[in-house]
Design a binder for these strands. Structure first.
Length: 613
RNA sequence: GCACCUGUAGCUCAGUGGAUAGAGCGUUCGCCUCCGGAGCGAAAGGUCACAAGUUCGAGUCUUGUCAGGUGCGCCA
């Protein structure tokens, strides 16, 4: 049988390019090959002739016809023909189905390192649904980039010297809270104290006292004296991330960066640039400022203070220092082992007693940060230009996501108007358990399945929409298990497992496939299945996890539709196990490929693939 | 004021400059004697915010307008 060396579309493009060469087209346009719309003749087509009309001074149909005459298509192209200016290809169905049935493999690793930073939640209270979108996007993108052949490193930044951490730790002291015993999860317990502290601060007298205490705590944090206390909160938060399926390579603590003097090194590195200065008069007298006007046009005031006139660095300066470390412009952070993650992979952390580790030094970075910080991240990017590293600035990508509303309203961590991620996952699993009890009372392990499906529903809801669109978190919508949801995709997977299980029982699982028996039903499904590798590459290129999620919905819909297909007289058209010998083998091959692709696709967006639902 | 993002069916959203703009939810009507009905089929539902432009071709690119969101401190 015919074997495709590369993708179907790639080979069709090559054939067209070759024909254009034979026609003497010296500067061929980019050749686009796409699936034909439903109802059109052929399987794939290209509008390349239209674009050439002006150059060649001929009508598109004539050009298309001439290209077809010169075309030497692969032998699996049954027919190449012109229709309305398009060149369409009808493929040998047997080839198409067989090609689609080959399981997709991860691309071999190549290129420089890409460092993905996500989560970066203040270590002072439990994660809420606003953080949820960050974790899901970042973790999914890391998985997609890895599959696409990138060398990926995942980092989580711990702001342990920030005001939020100080407020939480001081709240414990202020209220004299000793033990969280009997309360539940530790980060929730601390978070409650934090919210109570803010209520307390509405009283001006108490506020003054609290302010003093917070300042003292802040100093202790900066000196690294409260590391164990912060760590306890962090490890509690980490349980939530693990439950979501997110894992990391390294945690980077702000206090460690400060102690190693990275910030000072970054400022020193910038000093040589013509874009920074220390004005002696005017608005910025005495401060160390950066002029971004050459790199960020249209700003009213392009000057940015890095170090204030009192010698204290700004927040942005810290971000710049971290970015310089990420991209190898600075070195000198020490790491040690921190945890063994659920997958078995080691997690490392910066630590005063650590040793050098090969983290950082990436050619490309992805910062998963909400869209409100777009300006700050543009400045970080501009700082790389200021440093004369245009190459690195181009590799600095901000994965911006819009905020998550809660039932139509803005959330507030300070006021406690939030829903925690733990709460959402509990509720989701609970609801799934009820569905399982109703639909599949004999389920062998309902608890485990409910967890996988419930968490899957939540994760899928977080990534199926383009990141720059605001989403409104509504329980009924996020925890729906019908339609465009994670469970819909998981159900498609479970269905392939169910059929293959039965095929095994009946001893037909390894039946020889006769691809020549492929029907239009199989061809239609195969075309969508064959899209998988390029979908993942596209998602990796534009760094958009929702592309994979949307594809999984398409693939699942095509498979459910195939499964239920009926002939015009209402009989089941696509039975797998009851099909004649050879055709049954073909359909089993297709189902195996579907199972593999759905499992792989679910993994890319961080969903478990339960075999029984 | 300036900058960035968004505007597609009643609602929530997909949609490489290419063929008749697609899903889900909701509404209506159907489909288990059948490999899992968390599923499938069909119907109804569209001024792709508005206007001009570029192009053989615009939901997609450019400019302007309108509407919504966000950001713009020697705060953190």
């Amino acid at each position: 049988m015919l074997e495709p060396k590369t993708g179907i579309k790639t080979q069709l493009k090559a054939a067209v390019a070759q024909a254009l060469g034979a026609l003497g087209v010296t500067e061929p346009p980019e050749i686009v090959v796409q699936e034909t719309p439903a109802g059109k003749e052929g399987d794939y087509g290209t509008p390349v002739a239209m674009g050439l009309a002006r150059v060649l001074r001929k009508a598109p149909p004539q050009i298309a016809t001439e290209i077809i005459e010169k075309l030497q298509p692969p032998q699996w192209v049954k027919r190449a023909f012109m229709t309305g200016g398009y060149i369409n290809f009808e493929l040998d169905p047997a080839f198409l189905v067989q090609a689609a049935a080959r399981p997709a493999q991860p691309a071999p690793v190549s290129g420089g390192k890409v460092l993905v930073e996500h989560t970066s939640v203040n270590p002072n209270k439990e994660l809420h649904v606003g953080h949820l979108r960050n974790v899901c996007l970042g973790d999914s993108l890391a998985r997609i980039l890895r599959f696409a052949g990138r060398n990926v490193e995942v980092m989580n930044y711990i702001d342990d010297t920030g005001r939020q951490a100080a407020e939480s730790l001081y709240a414990l002291e202020y209220f004299g809270l000793g033990s969280s015993e009997g309360y539940g999860k530790y980060d929730h317990w601390v978070g409650d104290a934090y919210v109570r502290l803010h209520q307390e601060m509405e009283d001006p007298e108490k506020k003054a006292v609290i302010e003093q205490g917070v300042q003292q705590t802040l100093h202790k944090l900066e000196a690294g004296e409260l590391r164990a206390e912060v760590d306890k909160i962090l490890r509690s938060q980490l349980q939530t991330m693990y439950r979501l399926g997110a894992e990391y390579d390294a945690f980077v603590w702000e206090s460690d960066i400060v102690r190693e003097g990275l910030l000072a090194k970054a400022m020193k590195a910038l000093e040589g640039s013509p874009y920074v200065s220390r004005p002696t008069e005017g608005k910025y007298a005495g401060a160390f400022v950066m002029d971004t006007s050459a790199f960020i046009p249209g700003l009213e005031d392009p000057y940015l203070v890095l170090v204030r006139s009192n010698g204290v660095s700004t927040y942005t300066a810290k971000d710049i220092g971290l970015q310089f470390w990420k991209m190898g412009l600075l070195e000198g952070i020490k790491f040690q082992e921190y945890d063994t993650q659920p997958s078995g992979a080691k997690l490392y952390t910066t630590h005063p007693q650590g040793g050098p580790m090969p983290f950082g030094g990436a050619l490309e970075t992805v910062n998963v940060v909400d869209a409100r910080q777009s300006h700050a991240l543009r400045i970080v990017q501009a700082s790389l230009e200021v440093e004369g590293r245009h190459d690195l600035a181009e590799g600095c990508f901000h994965l911006a996501y819009e905020t998550v509303l809660l039932e139509g309203k803005q959330m507030s961590g300070r006021k406690g108007i939030v829903v925690s991620v733990d709460e959402v996952m509990d509720e989701a699993a609970k609801r799934v358990l009820a569905v399982i009890a109703e639909k599949n009372p004999d389920h062998p392990n309902p608890q485990e399945a409910a967890e996988q499906i419930g968490v899957g529903a939540v994760r899928f809801a977080m990534i199926k929409t383009e990141s720059k669109k605001q989403i409104d978190f509504r329980y009924d919508q996020a925890l729906s298990f019908e339609g465009d949801t994670g469970p819909y995709v998981q159900m498609a997977f479970a269905r392939t497992c169910s059929i293959l299980r039965k095929a095994e029982e009946q001893g037909v699982i390894n039946e020889q496939a006769d691809f020549s028996q492929a029907t239009p039903y199989e061809v239609e499904l195969a075309k969508i299945l064959a899209r998988f590798p390029e979908v993942v590459q596209d998602a990796a290129r534009i760094k958009a996890p929702h592309v994979v999620a949307q594809y999984l919905l398409d693939l699942s819909a095509a498979w459910h539709s195939y499964f239920n297909a009926k002939t015009p007289d209402g009989k089941a058209a696509t039975r797998v196990l009851d099909a004649p010998t050879g055709l049954r083998g073909l359909r089993l091959e297709l189902v195996k490929a579907l199972r593999q692709t759905l499992r792989q696709g679910l993994e890319l967006v961080g969903l478990q693939a339960p075999e029984v639902m």
